[in-house]
Design a protein around this nucleic acid. Sequence first.
DNA 1: TTAACGATTCGCT
DNA 2: GCGAATCGTTAAA
Length: 204
Amino acid sequence: MDSAAGLLDGRDALSAAPLLLGAVIRRTDAEGSVAVRLTEVEAYLGADDPGSHAFRGRTARNAPMFGPPGGLYVYLSYGIHRCANIVFGPEGEPSAVLLRAGEVVEGVELARRRRPAVRADAHLARGPGNLGTVMGWSLADSGTLLGGDVELRLAAPAPTVLRSPRTGVALPGGGAEHPWRFHLPGEPSVSPYRASAPRRASAR
DNA sequence: TTAACGATTCGCT
DNA sequence: GCGAATCGTTAAA
């Protein structure tokens, strides 16, 4: 996993997530390269985490979450938005960190072209779907390993890391017992916090 | 085969 | 701040 290997190898998503803050992830394709300095992430586990895509077991979509650490898991949200995770934990035990927001530090021109409606550069990669758009994630990236077209470079551990319940995940206790969203303080690229996903009357 | 639901975003008030 | 849009994935029939 690039220079990240030593520090992150062997960790699950929960302990790795705060260490990813400040790290730079870069993706290169035919259009060029875009790199983002991560400011907000969320951890997702497996069978014990009702908010995780892996909670109900392995499917074609979430298979990368069960794969080796250092892999990418890209999925479609609401049929449109591409969101990306970095896989952690031993192979077979699903655990991943969702990349929620960041600051574009390379390829700003390309990022602006991919999101023409955005005025402020600080908002280019605010929110997982938006970050996905500027990075240019493709479903073909899902299941691939870091070190190819996608590179991760860790930064020194952040002196201050803020925690809160995960955005868009409704849990019995309101998520208070699972403050698995991590973000850096004072970052304009951090998406505003929402208590939970909109929930319709019917239950599952 | 069919129906329901989102790890969200954007535009309008 | 609120509500609709949108379509692939999943689970149920």
